[in-house]
Nucleic acid binder design. Structure first.
Lengths: 344, 344
DNA sequence: CTGTTAGCGCGTTCAC
DNA sequence: GTGAACGCGCTAACAG
C-alpha cells in the first residue's frame, strides 16, 4: 500500500460529522476543486459533472465545512451586528431588516448585545474581528478610540447606524438625532407647551436628541426644559417610573418627551392610572414609531425613523461592498418625521 | 537567503488584517505554540514569557484568527439559535437570556429568524451545521425529518425550546403548551365564560395551546369554542384585526384567548376603541407575560412561561455539555402559570 | 471546463 | 515549561 493511501486513511482527528470534500470527489470520480466549484460556482462546471457531483453529495450526506472554506478564502460570509438590546425595541426591527437582507445575499448574522455598555462593545468588536467577519454593523457613532482604530484597520466594510456623521468610520445609515429632538421640541412648542420634561437613556443618541430638544426650547421665549432624567432603558415599566419621577419633581409639566416609544407607552399607562388626561393635561411624545405607537389609546405622537429600513440599508451597503462594488453614497440620511397623533 | 526565509516573506494572499501569530512569536523570541498557550491557557506559560508575549501582541496589534483556530481545534465557540422572529416578541427575551449566558461562557451567537417558515429552518440548520457551530438552539419540537436527522448526526448539543417532549432530538427546555392552553381554558371557564374564541399563529406551539384549550372546553357542559382564527403573527395590529374578525363572526363571544401577548394587547386596544368593557363584556387573555402585560390598562391576564429563563437554561445546558459535562436533566420542564390580572 | 500545487493560520501530538 | 512537525478541510492561482 502506498504512502499516499496510508495518509488518506489516517485516523480522523475531526468531528463525527460525515464526509469531506475528498470523499465526494472520489465518489464522483473528479478532483476536489471540481466539487468545490460545483458547490460554489456551478456555472463553471459542465452540467453532466455537476449532476454526478450532486449525486455523490447526497449519497454521503456531505455538508461543506465553511470554517475551512473561510480560512482558505479569507471570507466568512458572516456579518456581525452590535446593538444595545433587542428587548421590545427599535433595534429588533433593525436586526430583522438587516438579517433578511443579508440572508438574501447568503450571509449569516452574528449578534452582539451590549446592554448599553460601551465597554462591552469594545470586547465584542475585538471578538468579531478575530472571527474575521466580512462586515460589521454597529449602533451609533460613539465608539472608544480603540474600537474605531480596530474597525478602521480591519479592512472590512463597517456601517454605523441610528445616527449621522460626515466623518463615519466607513459608512453610516441613520438620521440626525439632534435634528429629530429639535423637531419634536418645535412640534410641542407649536402646540403651546412651555413646561417641558425629558427622559431617556444616557447613550449618545439620546443625548443628541436631548441636545436638539433643548436648543429649540432655549430659543423660545417663555419655554423651559424643567426636568431631565437620564437613567432609563427601553422598558414599559421604566417609562412608568420615569413619568412618576418627573411629576414628583415638577407637577406643573405640560409635555414630556420620552426618548423611545417603550418608555412613552409606559408613561401613557402611568397617566391612565393617575387619571391624568392625555393630551389635555399632559402631552406625551415618544420616539421611533414602534408598532404599538399607532395602536395604543391614545395613539402616541412620536418620531418615525424607519427602524427596519436602517437595517435594510445597512445590509445593502454591506452586500454591495462585499460584492466588490463601490457604494456611491456611503453616508445615508434616512430622515425622520414627527408623526402627530392623539397623545401630543 | 535561505529557502525558509523566502518562504516566510512570501507575499500574503490574505487580508490586510495585521499580523499573524508567527509575527508575535518572533517578536517575543518564542515559538508559535508558546504564543498560543499564552493566549488560550496562560497558566501553562511562565509569567516572564507571558509578559513578553503580551507586550509583543500589543506591539503589533495582533488579533488571533479564530477561523484558523476553529479549523485546527474543530471548535468554533459559536452557538446558533433559530427563532421565528424577534419582533416585539417573547423570543427576544429568550435570545437575550441565551446570549448573555453564552457570552459569559465565551461563546458567540449566530442568529437565524425563520419568519415562521419551516422551510427556512431546514436551510438555516444546514448552513449553521456547515459552519460547524458548537451547539444549536431551535424553537419548538416540530422539525422536518431531514432537519432532525441532520441535527442528530451533527454530534453537537442541541436544545429544543418553548415546548416539551419526552423524546427530544437531544435536550429540551420549555413547558407544556397543551397544558398551558388547558390551564387557561380552565381559568376562563371557572370565571363563568362559556362562549370562547381563540386566535393565534399556525405554528406547532400555538396549535398545541389550542389543543389543550379545546380539550378543557369540550369537557365542560355548555361551553363552546365558537371561533378559531389561525393566520396571525406577533404584531399589535394583528391582534386588533384578529379581535375584529372574531367579533364579526360571532358578536356573542364572552372571552377570547390570544396565543401571544402582542396579539392580546392589540385586542385590548381594539376593545378600547369599540368601547367594549374588558372584562365585563369581554374577557381577554394573552400568552407569555411580556413586560407590557402587567403595565397596560386593564392589566392583561396571561400565562407566564419564563421566556428569558428558557434562553438561560438552554445556554446553561449547552455550556455544560460543551465543557464535557453530562447534563443530568436534559428534559427541563420550566413550567407555566396563569397570571390572573384585570382583563379576564 | 478540469486538474495540480501550495498554502490559509492555528492547535494537536509527542518529544525534550 | 517549551518546541517541531504535521494537518484541520478547503480554495486561489495557475496551468492545460
Amino acid at each position: 500500500m502506498s504512502i499516499e493511501k496510508l495518509d488518506t486513511q489516517r485516523k480522523r482527528r475531526a468531528s463525527a460529522v460525515g464526509s469531506r470534500m475528498e470523499d465526494v470527489a472520489s465518489l464522483a470520480g473528479v478532483s476536489m476543486i471540481t466539487v468545490s466549484r460545483a458547490i460554489n460556482t456551478p456555472d463553471k462546471v459542465s452540467l453532466a459533472t455537476r449532476k454526478r457531483v450532486e449525486a455523490a453529495i447526497r449519497k454521503c450526506g456531505y455538508v461543506p465545512n465553511l470554517t475551512a472554506g473561510s480560512l482558505a478564502s479569507n471570507k466568512s460570509r458572516i456579518v456581525a451586528a452590535i446593538v444595545p438590546t433587542i428587548d421590545n425595541s427599535i433595534f429588533a426591527e433593525t436586526i430583522r431588516g438587516l438579517s433578511e437582507t443579508l440572508a438574501a445575499g447568503g450571509y449569516q448574522l452574528l449578534l452582539g448585545q451590549t446592554g448599553y455598555d460601551e465597554h462591552n462593545e469594545e470586547a465584542m468588536v475585538a471578538a468579531f474581528l478575530g472571527r474575521r467577519v466580512d462586515g460589521i454593523v454597529v449602533t451609533g457613532i460613539d465608539h472608544s478610540a480603540l474600537t474605531r482604530k480596530r474597525l478602521r484597520q480591519a479592512g472590512i466594510p463597517v456601517v454605523e447606524t441610528w445616527d449621522l456623521t460626515d466623518r463615519p468610520i466607513d459608512m453610516v445609515a441613520g438620521f440626525s438625532n439632534v435634528g429629530a429632538g429639535h423637531a419634536m421640541a418645535r412640534y410641542l412648542l407649536a402646540k403651546g407647551h412651555r413646561r417641558l420634561g425629558f427622559a431617556g437613556g444616557a447613550d449618545g443618541r439620546t443625548r443628541a436628541r436631548l441636545t436638539g430638544f433643548m436648543a429649540a426650547i432655549h430659543a423660545t421665549r417663555g419655554a423651559h426644559l424643567q426636568q431631565v432624567l437620564l437613567p432609563a432603558g427601553t422598558s414599559f415599566h421604566g417609562g412608568r417610573e420615569a413619568l412618576a419621577a418627573l411629576l414628583d419633581l415638577d407637577s406643573s409639566l405640560d409635555a414630556v418627551f420620552l426618548s423611545n416609544d417603550a418608555l412613552a407607552v409606559g408613561a401613557l399607562m402611568e397617566c391612565a392610572r393617575r387619571r391624568i388626561r392625555v393630551p389635555q393635561e399632559l402631552a406625551i411624545a415618544g420616539f421611533a414609531d414602534l408598532d404599538i405607537a399607532a395602536e395604543i389609546e391614545p395613539a402616541l405622537t412620536t418620531v418615525q425613523v424607519g427602524s427596519r429600513k436602517i437595517g435594510e440599508q445597512a445590509g445593502q451597503m454591506l452586500l454591495a461592498r462585499l460584492a466588490g462594488q463601490t457604494v456611491n453614497n456611503p453616508i445615508r440620511d434616512l430622515g425622520f418625521a414627527v408623526v402627530p397623533r392623539a397623545s401630543a
